[in-house]
């Protein structure tokens, strides 16, 4: 993934990203840190293609996965297993049970999404994101809301993906990602410090 002079703003006075340059190569894990409101989520959304930059260019590979922050409970009365298989069909891949088992999601598979806790929703989004060995994985604060076992499982899943050549862009508050980050960048007021 390559971002060149990428900017995004709500209004001219509320600039969120200001001329960001960023490269994430295959098999590399780049962690972006920053305070609340520094632009991490916007950067993740632009990187994944969920948001088109107002200025600048983004080049990405074809098979992208995005794991957003599960800050809200989805108004979806869809069973977790059906959601995962439907999303896999949309992406043109096979639904993987490996990540479901690794994240301890078995018991949640038959429950509707709108009845799950925020932490479990995060696990579901991670399970959806890591399946199918994407070429680029963008995760927005994936460690937030996870229990200790799930954090360890996520570490392992990310390591495996990186070893398989997946480029990983991660935003994170915590020190969880410090150990396996190839590069760490600090975002301040929409610019890398």
């Amino acid at each position: 993934m390559r971002l060149r002079t990428v900017s995004w703003w709500f209004t001219r006075r509320a600039v969120v990203l200001d001329g960001i340059d960023l490269d994430v190569r295959a098999g590399e894990c780049v962690v972006v840190r920053g305070l609340n409101g520094s632009g991490k989520t916007t950067l993740a959304r632009v990187g994944a293609g969920a948001l088109i930059p107002k200025r600048g260019q983004v080049e990405r590979t074809a098979r992208i996965s995005y794991v957003p922050q599960a800050s809200d409970n989805p108004p979806i009365r869809l069973r977790t297993d059906r959601f995962l298989s439907a999303l896999a069909r949309v992406r043109g891949i096979e639904a993987s049970s490996e990540s479901v088992d690794a994240l301890g999601l078995r018991t949640a598979m038959r429950r509707p999404l709108n009845e799950l806790s925020t932490g479990t929703i995060t696990k579901v989004l991670i399970a959806a994101g890591v399946s199918g060995a994407p070429e680029l994985l963008v995760c927005d604060e994936p460690f937030a809301d996870l229990d200790t076992a799930a954090r360890a499982a996520l570490h392992e899943l990310l390591e495996r993906l990186r070893a398989g050549g997946t480029a990983i862009l991660l935003t994170d508050h915590s020190d969880e990602s410090h150990d396996f980050a190839d590069r760490e960048l600090l975002l301040e007021n929409g610019k890398f410090a």
Partner: peptide
Amino acid sequence: CESRAFADVTLVA
């Protein structure tokens, strides 16, 4: 019909 997070996931997919 989706929350923003899920709508983003679908959009990227």
